[in-house]
Design a protein around this nucleic acid. Sequence first.
DNA 1: TTGTTGCGTTCATTGATTGAACGCATGGAT
DNA 2: ATCCATGCGTTCAATCAATGAACGCAACAA
Lengths: 111, 111
Amino acid sequence: MNEDTHLRVLRLVEQNPGISQRDMARELGVSLGKANYCLRALLEKGWVKARNFKNNDNKLQYAYLLTPSGIENKTRLTANYLQAKMAEYERLRVEIEQLKEEVVASGHDAS
Amino acid sequence: MNEDTHLRVLRLVEQNPGISQRDMARELGVSLGKANYCLRALLEKGWVKARNFKNNDNKLQYAYLLTPSGIENKTRLTANYLQAKMAEYERLRVEIEQLKEEVVASGHDAS
DNA sequence: TTGTTGCGTTCATTGATTGAACGCATGGAT
DNA sequence: ATCCATGCGTTCAATCAATGAACGCAACAA
């Protein structure tokens, strides 16, 4: 499972603890199976806890809450993610610059 | 098969018609099987022609050449690609901006 | 001649992902 | 009280892209 997906799930859960796995999947643009798999991984790690939403001994309709460890790791993942995105941004800048030259050059050839 | 991969293959072939599928795969960071599959798709479309490199009736060691249609489509794909990358660049700019705010905010909370 | 290298090709295997189907709880309608 | 529809988390067979080991073949050097 992807760390980026983990981060996105942590974000969704923090912002809306009552979110269902189906809505989570829709929001992430992945299948229900994957959302479930990812969420279970986070539960396994202890980054997220599931609390019963309505009755106290029913099984379904959870509220998902970030644990302190989950908050900590979300911060860490966010920092990593930001750094990666900034590197990607720079890489993209250079690539676009080169592509523009290339397009202009082939335009000259064609004229 | 991905259009981006097609474009990258067209680029490689144009710049080095004598390239082998193995080097192509290495350059693209994909498997030999995928490079082969992709190249065959381009041959099928008539964007690339394979010419025998050494002997005229041997089967292997081709030179891959862009056809006029291949050149045309490479230009088109490049333009599309550039446009997509520019949109992605802008999207990334916004995302990074938001992430920075988020990181700063959580930093304030933690201090 | 013989062994090695490099070529394109093939295809069984892998691994991630999907989404239909399941059992269960809930809540509204009859 | 009974029924039905809805929504929940869970499961898992099926799918599909991707892999890379293995093949036959040509070329070349020893």
